[in-house]
Simulated scan of single mutants.
Amino acid sequence: MMSLHLSDVLTRFLPDYQQHYAMNWQQQAACKHILQCRTLALGQQLWQCDNCQQQQVVYCSCRDRHCPRCQGQRTRDWIEAQAANLLQVKYFHLVFTLPHELNVISQYAPEKLYKSLFSAVWQTLSKFALQHRKSTGELGMTAVLHTWGQTLTQHIHLHCLIPGGMLSKAERWQVIDKGYLFPVKALSTVFRAKMLQQLRDEKLSIPDKDALLTTPWTVFSKACLCKPQTVLRYLGRYTRKGVLHESRLQRISAEGVSFSYRDYRDDNKRKAMTLSGPEFIRRYLSHVLPKGFMRIRHYGLLANRCRKRKLTIIRQQEAQRKPKDEATATERETPCWRCSHCQVGSLHLASVIAHRPEGNPDG
């Protein structure tokens, strides 16, 4: 069975979608990149086997963060870079979810809404860290914004990975031994207050304010991660995960687009859903982020400005040495793959061929 791609959906249904919906320039750019990805429009690379000398042509990718075909290598590269920042402690995984009443703000002020979410979550965790009964100090946090649910609807939430320890003002590392970071019900109450205050500071209109003040907000604590390899897998899964993995696409027909999803309310069962082509595209494009918006952010002792120094202090106190491959930076090798022709040699990049539009002379 031929694999399906998001570009197939756009090729078939985007003209119809454009007749019914307006697109901002970020959405237009994302569609253009996805349609051009791994086609002649972006040029091609020539790879050659070092054994049989067989040559293969590979089309270049668009590298757009909204393109599902461009996340694999970027995920591996990012995980490799993050390995140097891991601490030999357990990690807490918390998920802060916005009530769906606030989804409407993402339609006219997405950057302010998402920025407020990051700030409110970090302020909430910092408040608890400074008021901890046994020890106080600074936490570290890697936060990742997701705006989608399994059926591509708006489900705005923040995944937070937090090392199990605090760095005191005297820069003494204090490990958190208990099985949870902070009580989630208490976190939920403070998170609600911080988020609503952030929205007021941004001068955003808050819909259904009375309901938001009386309804419990969701803060979910997942199981602790105890091994560095597990933490890396989680980082890859949650940081570079796109809106829709193309393996979930099942069928594209006149009726629309069929795709699989997991129903978390029904014992995590895998089900299928069919949407009209324009509706599928509308849902997908609703998750296109503002240009330049950072959906992965580091806070506290993991913040970019102080991470290297503070991690060094922590590792010294833990009497742990860095692995040899972390001690010095090494130049990345060009990736290579096994030759599909002889199954013995490896493919190596021979040249990059830029695409020249038809009608343009060479030279």
Rank of each mutant, 00 (worst) to 15 (best):
residue 258 S to L: 11
residue 209 K to M: 12
residue 54 Q to T: 11
residue 260 S to W: 08
residue 197 Q to M: 13
residue 271 K to D: 05
residue 162 I to K: 02
residue 118 F to K: 09
residue 130 L to F: 01
residue 251 R to G: 04
residue 97 T to F: 01
residue 52 C to E: 11
residue 312 T to H: 08
residue 130 L to V: 04
residue 286 S to N: 12
residue 12 R to L: 14
residue 217 W to K: 02
residue 179 G to R: 07
residue 40 L to A: 13
residue 169 K to Q: 14
residue 359 G to Y: 06
residue 246 E to S: 10
residue 196 L to N: 01
residue 164 G to M: 03
residue 326 E to R: 10
residue 255 E to M: 08
residue 182 F to G: 09
residue 217 W to C: 01
residue 269 K to I: 13
residue 352 V to K: 13
residue 172 R to Y: 04
residue 282 R to I: 02
residue 6 L to G: 00
residue 293 F to Y: 11
residue 220 F to K: 05
residue 83 A to T: 14
residue 182 F to T: 09
residue 249 L to W: 06
residue 323 P to F: 07
residue 48 Q to P: 04
residue 10 L to N: 10
residue 311 L to S: 07
residue 29 A to L: 13
residue 199 L to C: 01
residue 223 A to M: 08
residue 200 R to K: 12
residue 289 L to N: 00
residue 173 W to D: 09
residue 157 H to T: 10
residue 77 D to P: 00
residue 328 T to G: 05
residue 237 R to Y: 14
residue 188 S to F: 05
residue 197 Q to Y: 08
residue 362 D to Y: 13
residue 275 L to W: 08
residue 23 M to I: 15
residue 44 Q to M: 15
residue 178 K to C: 07
residue 6 L to S: 00
residue 300 G to I: 04
residue 91 Y to V: 11
residue 297 R to Q: 12
residue 297 R to E: 04
residue 173 W to E: 06
residue 198 Q to A: 15
residue 102 L to D: 00
residue 307 R to M: 06
residue 70 C to Q: 08
residue 314 I to R: 02
residue 124 T to H: 10
residue 81 A to V: 07
residue 62 C to Y: 03
residue 280 F to E: 07
residue 250 Q to F: 08
residue 2 M to N: 00
residue 136 T to M: 07
residue 60 C to V: 08
residue 322 K to Q: 10
residue 274 T to S: 10
residue 177 D to F: 09
residue 258 S to T: 15
residue 55 Q to H: 00
residue 159 H to N: 09
residue 296 I to K: 01
residue 237 R to A: 12
residue 108 Y to Q: 05
residue 193 A to W: 01
residue 275 L to F: 12
residue 154 Q to K: 14
residue 22 A to E: 10
residue 246 E to C: 12
residue 280 F to T: 10
residue 119 S to C: 03
residue 19 Q to N: 15
residue 248 R to H: 14
residue 136 T to V: 12
